[in-house]
Deep mutational scan, measured.
Amino acid sequence: NKFNKEMRNAYWEILHLPNLNEEQKNAFIQSLYDDPSQSANLLAEAKKLNDAQA
């Protein structure tokens, strides 16, 4: 299933973003579980936030 793979990839990438705190990571990961079809968008948002907090 495409979403499972996308979701897993997004999950791991978000988990390893160095500039997000636990609360931010948890919020993105919760959103992933709530709507796996948004994995790519959530990952993009997480990366933007990560870069902004660098």
Score class of each variant (00 low, 15 high):
residue 4 N to M: 03
residue 33 Y to E: 03
residue 25 K to N: 04
residue 37 S to Q: 08
residue 4 N to V: 03
residue 38 Q to I: 11
residue 8 R to E: 15
residue 54 A to G: 09
residue 8 R to G: 06
residue 44 A to K: 12
residue 26 N to P: 03
residue 28 F to I: 05
residue 39 S to T: 05
residue 36 P to L: 08
residue 13 E to K: 14
residue 47 K to Q: 06
residue 31 S to R: 12
residue 3 F to R: 15
residue 15 L to R: 05
residue 9 N to R: 15
residue 8 R to N: 12
residue 53 Q to W: 08
residue 40 A to G: 07
residue 49 L to H: 05
residue 3 F to K: 15
residue 22 E to S: 13
residue 42 L to M: 08
residue 8 R to F: 14
residue 2 K to H: 14
residue 7 M to N: 01
residue 5 K to S: 01
residue 48 K to T: 06
residue 7 M to Q: 15
residue 7 M to T: 07
residue 14 I to H: 00
residue 4 N to H: 09
residue 1 N to F: 00
residue 14 I to F: 04
residue 10 A to W: 01
residue 43 L to E: 04
residue 7 M to W: 15
residue 38 Q to V: 08
residue 4 N to Y: 13
residue 42 L to I: 11
residue 41 N to M: 10
residue 34 D to Y: 04
residue 44 A to G: 14
residue 31 S to A: 12
residue 9 N to S: 03
residue 11 Y to F: 05
residue 19 N to M: 14
residue 38 Q to M: 09
residue 1 N to K: 11
residue 38 Q to G: 07
residue 53 Q to V: 07
residue 28 F to R: 05
residue 7 M to D: 01
residue 13 E to G: 14
residue 30 Q to F: 09
residue 51 D to L: 09
residue 14 I to N: 00
residue 43 L to S: 11
residue 54 A to V: 11
residue 48 K to G: 10
residue 10 A to V: 03
residue 17 L to R: 04
residue 10 A to H: 02
residue 12 W to Y: 07
residue 34 D to Q: 13
residue 26 N to V: 14
residue 18 P to E: 15
residue 42 L to F: 13
residue 52 A to T: 12
residue 42 L to D: 06
residue 44 A to R: 07
residue 46 A to Y: 03
residue 34 D to W: 08
residue 48 K to E: 08
residue 27 A to K: 12
residue 8 R to Q: 13
residue 7 M to I: 06
residue 20 L to Y: 00
residue 24 Q to G: 05
residue 21 N to H: 12
residue 16 H to L: 03
residue 36 P to K: 04
residue 35 D to E: 09
residue 28 F to W: 06
residue 18 P to S: 14
residue 13 E to P: 01
residue 31 S to W: 05
residue 14 I to M: 07
residue 48 K to W: 08
residue 9 N to P: 01
residue 15 L to I: 11
residue 50 N to Q: 13
residue 33 Y to P: 01
residue 23 E to Q: 12
residue 47 K to F: 02
residue 30 Q to A: 13
residue 19 N to A: 04
residue 44 A to F: 14
residue 37 S to V: 04
residue 9 N to Q: 14
residue 23 E to D: 07
residue 44 A to D: 07
residue 23 E to K: 12
residue 15 L to W: 04
residue 52 A to S: 11
residue 38 Q to N: 08
residue 14 I to L: 07
residue 45 E to Y: 08
residue 5 K to M: 00
residue 7 M to L: 04
residue 5 K to H: 02
residue 42 L to N: 09
residue 8 R to P: 00
residue 21 N to S: 14
residue 47 K to D: 02
residue 28 F to T: 10
residue 9 N to E: 13
residue 8 R to V: 11
residue 25 K to T: 12
residue 5 K to P: 10
residue 51 D to K: 09
residue 11 Y to E: 05
residue 51 D to V: 07
residue 32 L to Y: 00
residue 19 N to K: 10
residue 51 D to P: 04
residue 46 A to K: 00
residue 52 A to Y: 12
residue 53 Q to Y: 05
residue 42 L to K: 12
residue 20 L to A: 03
residue 4 N to I: 01
residue 22 E to Y: 15
residue 50 N to I: 03
residue 30 Q to N: 10
residue 17 L to Q: 10
residue 27 A to L: 08
residue 46 A to Q: 00
residue 43 L to Y: 06
residue 52 A to H: 08
residue 4 N to G: 14
residue 25 K to L: 12
residue 14 I to G: 01
residue 6 E to I: 12
residue 17 L to S: 05
residue 23 E to L: 15
residue 34 D to G: 13
residue 39 S to M: 13
residue 41 N to T: 07
residue 22 E to W: 13
residue 43 L to F: 03
residue 46 A to L: 02
residue 26 N to T: 02
residue 38 Q to Y: 09
residue 52 A to G: 11
residue 3 F to Q: 15
residue 39 S to L: 14
residue 37 S to W: 10
residue 3 F to S: 15
residue 24 Q to A: 10
residue 16 H to Q: 04
residue 7 M to S: 02
residue 14 I to W: 00
residue 17 L to F: 06
residue 47 K to S: 07
residue 4 N to Q: 09
residue 43 L to T: 07
residue 28 F to S: 08
residue 17 L to P: 00
residue 25 K to Y: 07
residue 16 H to I: 03
residue 23 E to P: 08
residue 54 A to T: 02
residue 27 A to F: 11
residue 31 S to E: 14
residue 26 N to S: 12
residue 50 N to R: 05
residue 5 K to Q: 10
residue 21 N to G: 08
residue 50 N to G: 06
residue 48 K to F: 06
residue 23 E to H: 12
residue 32 L to W: 02
residue 37 S to A: 11
residue 27 A to Q: 14
residue 30 Q to E: 11
residue 33 Y to Q: 02
residue 42 L to E: 05
residue 36 P to E: 02
residue 27 A to N: 10
residue 39 S to Q: 01
residue 21 N to M: 13
residue 37 S to G: 08
residue 3 F to Y: 02
residue 37 S to N: 06
residue 15 L to G: 02
residue 13 E to M: 11
residue 4 N to L: 08
residue 25 K to W: 03
residue 15 L to T: 04
residue 1 N to M: 01
residue 40 A to T: 13
residue 2 K to I: 14
residue 6 E to K: 02
residue 50 N to D: 13
residue 39 S to K: 05
residue 49 L to M: 09
residue 34 D to F: 10
residue 36 P to D: 01
residue 44 A to H: 05
residue 32 L to N: 01
residue 28 F to V: 07
residue 45 E to H: 13
residue 17 L to E: 03
residue 50 N to P: 03
residue 10 A to R: 03
residue 36 P to N: 05
residue 36 P to I: 03
residue 24 Q to N: 06
residue 43 L to H: 03
residue 3 F to I: 15
residue 2 K to E: 15
residue 12 W to H: 09
residue 13 E to L: 10
residue 31 S to N: 07
residue 43 L to G: 03
residue 11 Y to Q: 05
residue 41 N to A: 12
residue 47 K to A: 05
residue 28 F to L: 07
residue 52 A to E: 09
residue 42 L to P: 03
residue 41 N to I: 11
residue 51 D to S: 13
residue 19 N to G: 05
residue 8 R to M: 15
residue 53 Q to T: 09
